[in-house]
Nucleic acid binder design. Structure first.
Length: 548
RNA sequence: GCGCCAGUAGCUCAGUAGGAUAGAGCAUCGGCCUUCUAAGCCGACGGUCGGGGGUUCGAAUCCUCCCUGGCGCACCA
């Protein structure tokens, strides 16, 4: 059992015996400074009023009760304003080894999600050009989140929303068409809304090859062909890029299909019926102010076209009808103004709290400290593919997941390529590789990894053994915290800590030259560390190499 | 003008529903390889947590007012 859970249960028993109410705000966690003990609890401070005692005395009372009643707790003492500090026996920490052996690749997993259906929608970039590095951050985050939620007992489905119905697609078709004509020597200026990227030229060339007669077609028909072809080709490219990045979406959902299936009209009807939509100035409006938005929003323009917002409401309506208890959308931070109205819409659909939006801040791409310009329209930008080709998917993903999503991220290609501590991915992977290399070497010397046995575990008796054991015990907590707060970076930080303890262990204790029993015991421990590093990295979608 | 996010060591950042003396890495300085990967380890230096006020036993964390930076405020998507 994990230390936090263990201490919580022990304290709860004592508190119940005394007839007190367990305080909701109780925090039980490892203290920041190890000299305070292995685990620490603040319940005495919270209980003082209720019990009409001063916190120190109360903590003392709890300490004595908990120490006497539990063989795993070797010492409990009071410090500061009434903290209860608990020291666990080394044997207690060794139980984690058993747990890791039993659960293996499932160690760290839990059922906290209780099978709740969760959808994670991410990337969903308009198919108007290749993915750039900012999309990469969203991709890494969404993919990792899906893995983390799955591992904590959620029923997860991942999705990419394809905006194939709107204005951007028309602009794409037009851009390709205009480029095609320009290539034929026609003197046409670039329209205002125009994609200028090099890839547009390639597409127009390909269209002409496939449809030699396109120049004689009516313009609307020609533009339509350009749009169709361009979108298909770009989507294909996006899929390939994501695949190379190790990211996969289970469902690709088409905006167009919503419109064609009448889902948008359906949603309009149900909003009207609920009195949440009304006509004004020839347009149809959604009463989003009823739900805290600062103005009402247009659903159907006076031109008769529906807005992006309208199909997005229908889209989320559809998501909920598909039975998701929670929908997680990952958007670029430049869409943050859009969140209140989308939340309003979900509330109007009767699903308040059913949508959680994660905004991911910009990625600032640098090369050796120099800014690299990025703009989809202008055509000068670093694509995700270029970045992944240059630094590799592992390093890129790890960096993306090493910051909380609402911080801006500096991504320096030179630093990410470097194999230094500026680049923590190598540090963590190196920990794994070091252990694997030891295993390999031990294997060559005829050593066979055994399962733990009491006489072996007896040999784990140093401070570094203890440090590693305690760190292993924390892994499930860190996974749970990252699932609860939808924050993969917590796992990334945990792994760096664990790796640091491993490297220290490696430097301090020469494993293979120890006496046979001790050597075996250490290999078992390090095997557990490798397992946890591997499990953690897999939640981030990063490879755990056996050699480097 | 309104709103969202950020401001923590020289730099890049952690800090999980308020908890103890605010933590890592990089950089700087000083140590550690005749043995398992030195892509490593140990030590030193480094801070009025942007600023002021408030809430309480206790604030980087919550409230409020300012300052700075980024982004958004469409019958665009």
């Amino acid at each position: 059992m994990r230390a936090e859970t263990h201490l919580e249960e022990a304290l709860k028993r004592v508190v119940a015996e005394k007839g007190w109410q367990w305080p909701e705000k109780a925090v039980i966690e490892p203290p920041k400074d190890r000299k305070f003990g292995d685990m620490s609890a603040n319940v005495a401070m919270l209980l003082a009023g209720q019990a009409r005692k001063n916190p120190r005395e109360l903590a003392q009372e709890l300490a004595e009760a908990v120490e006497a009643g539990d063989p795993d707790i070797v010492r409990a003492e009071v410090a500061g304003p009434g903290f209860l500090n608990v020291h666990y026996s080394l044997d207690f920490w060794k139980k984690t080894i058993r747990l890791i052996e039993e659960q293996a690749e499932r160690f760290g997993f839990s059922d906290m999600g209780k099978g709740r259906k969760v959808q994670v929608e991410y990337v969903s970039a308009n198919p108007t050009g290749p993915l750039h590095i900012g999309h990469g951050r969203g991709a890494a985050l969404g993919d990792s989140l899906a893995r983390i939620l799955r591992s904590t007992g959620h029923d997860v489905e991942t999705e990419y929303y394809v905006n194939d119905a709107g204005r951007q697609m028309k602009i794409l078709g037009n851009s390709i068409w205009v480029r095609l004509l320009q290539d034929q020597g026609r003197d046409i200026p670039d329209p205002d809304d125009f994609y200028k990227g090099e890839y547009i030229k390639d597409l127009s060339r390909e269209v002409l090859e496939l449809h030699p007669g396109i120049l004689d077609m009516a313009e609307s028909e020609a533009v339509d062909i350009c749009r169709q072809y361009g979108m298909g080709k770009i989507l294909e490219g996006i899929k390939t890029d994501l695949e190379q990045f190790g990211v996969e979406h289970q469902v690709w959902f088409s905006e167009k299909s919503l419109v064609q299936n009448g889902k948008v009209e359906e949603t309009f009807e149900s909003l009207k019926k609920a009195g949440l939509a009304y006509d004004k100035d020839g347009a149809l409006w959604f009463r989003s102010t009823d739900f805290g938005d600062d103005k009402d929003r247009v659903l159907r323009k006076s031109s008769g076209d529906i807005t992006y917002f309208a199909s997005d409401i229908a889209y989320h309506h559809d998501k909920f009808k598909r039975g998701f208890d929670l929908v997680v959308d990952i958007w670029g931070a430049d869409h943050h103004g859009y969140v209140p109205r989308m939340q309003a819409a979900c509330e109007a659909l009767g699903r308040k709290g059913g949508l959680q939006v994660i905004l991911v801040q910009l990625v600032n791409l640098l090369r050796g400290g120099e800014q690299v310009a990025m703009s989809t329209r202008g055509g000068q930008f670093e694509t995700l593919k270029d970045v992944v080709d240059e630094v590799g998917p592992d390093a890129a993903r790890f960096i993306f997941l090493s910051r909380k999503s609402d911080s801006k991220l500096d991504f320096d290609l030179e630093l990410v390529k470097q194999r230094t501590m500026d680049n923590p991915v190598y540090y963590v992977q190196y920990a794994h590789a070091r252990i694997c290399s030891l295993m390999h070497k031990a294997g060559e010397e005829g050593f066979k990894l055994e399962r733990s046995a009491p006489e072996l575990l007896e040999m784990l008796d140093t401070e570094e053994d203890r440090e590693l054991l305690m760190a292993l015990d924390r892994f499930p907590d860190s996974v749970e915290a990252s699932a609860r707060t939808l924050s993969p970076h917590l796992i990334s930080f945990y792994l760096q800590e664990l790796a640091s303890k491993l490297h220290k262990y490696y430097t301090t204790h020469h494993v293979l030259s120890a006496e046979p029993l001790r050597c075996k015991a250490r290999m078992i421990l390090l095997g557990c560390v490798a397992r946890v590093v591997g499990n953690g990295l897999s939640l981030l979608g990063v490879d755990a190499p056996e050699r480097m």
